[in-house]
Each structure stands twice: as structure tokens, then as C-alpha cells.
Amino acid sequence: MYSTKLRSLSLATLLTLGGAFLLAAYYAPVEADQGFSQKIFYVHVPMAIVALGGFVWGGIQGLLFLRTRDPKHDLRSYVAIHMSVILGIGVLLTGGLWARAAWGVWFEWREATLVSFLIVFLLYCTYQPLRFSILDPEKQSRYAAVFAVTAGAFVPLNFMAVRLANPFIHPRVLNNTTGGALPVDMKIPFYLALVGMTLLFVTLYRLEMTHKLTRGRVKGLERRLERLQGERDEASIPARSAAPQVLA
């Protein structure tokens, strides 16, 4: 059931992320302003970037679904958003710990970066209930794709709006994403952690896709068996999940 590609990806993720965290612990210097607590940066920021990238990827897949009506794109959009919401939980929790260590508070409501991420996260938390509330599978996929596209477009807009806002409390470690403000011995573990986190996202994404496709295969076999046994009408099988079904 599991491909060799998934195994190789898992291994690459483990090596990259493990290496990045080791470099962050032993190679990267302690930041002069924030001290040791700045080490949270190497897990928090890559996770946030990958989560936001995953939301945008979900939007792109939603757009592809609306253009082609291929359920494969709907499934990809669903899985990308699902994974990004999980990473989003990690971002909020690690961010809270960093805020507590650096500023003495768990959350700063006046800080645009934190509030905007929370808004994006809460917005995507409504994706699953939206899918669950629609019974018709075709409508469900279409509405979910529209949501994914709209919210996916909102993510970069939101990011840019926050970047333009003043004044900043939240550190701008990447100097407006050019990477100029970060010394080389911090850049190496950071970019390695970013690559590792992206690989982790891809690995988990593929794992979740394998799960969904296997479930689709199981449902397909159940239908085939029921047809053979003639026990139940095909239409009477209740939908147990709002996840898109790609039948094998």
C-alpha cells in the first residue's frame, strides 16, 4: 500500500529536519536581543511559511478542480488544507511559547502578524464544517473549491498587508523575506529547516492522499460486493465523511 517514494520522502524529511534542528541547537549562535528563546524561530517560522504555502496550494488545486471538475484536484485541495490546519495548530502553539518567552505574554492582540495568522487559521477551521454541511457530493466539492480559491487568494494579500503595516513588534528576521537581516550561521539552519518542513508537508500530504485513496478503494470494493450479493441498493450507502471520495 505504501510506495517506495513515500519511504524515501520520509527518510529525506527525517534527515533534513533532524539536521536542521541539530544545527539550530549547536551551530546557530544565540541571538543577542532575544537570547536562547530565539531558537524557537527554527521550528516556528518554517512551519508558518509551509502552512501558509499549503493553504495557497489548496487554493490552486481548488481552482484546477473548478476548471477541470476532476475529483483528484478536489482531494488534493482538501488534503492540503487539512495538513495546513494541523501545521497551523503547531504555529499558534509554538508562537505562543515564543511570545511568552520574548514578550511575557502568550498572545499579543495588537500585533498584526499574530492576529492575521489567527484569522487565517480560524477561516480555514470553517472549511471542514462547510464540507460536512453539504450533503450533495458534487455541490460539496464545488463550494469547497470556491472557498479554497477565495481563502487561498486571501492568504498572500493578508501577508502583504501585514508586511506594510507599522510599527512592528513581531521580529522581521527575514528582512521582508529577502533574508538579508539573518547572519549566515543562522541562515543555514533556517533554510534547512524550511526545506525539511516542506518535505514533512509533502510526506504527510502523500500519506494522507494514500489514506484517502485507499478508503476510496475500500468503498469501491464495498459497493462491488453489495452489488454481487444484492443485499442493498447502491444509493442507500450513507456518506460517512465529508472528505472527497475518489473511487478506485
Binding site: 536562547f36 528563546s37 524557537i40 503547531g90 502553539l93
Partner: peptide, 19 residues
Amino acid sequence: FPDGSGYVLAAYLVFFLLL
């Protein structure tokens, strides 16, 4: 232990636990 190491440990633990 350096100052704030508890928070750093907690952040990485949160990540690994979530995973």
C-alpha cells in the same frame, strides 16, 4: 540551562507531539 530554554524545549516538544 540558558534563560528561556524551557520555552524552547516546550516548543520543540509541541511540534514532535503534534507530529
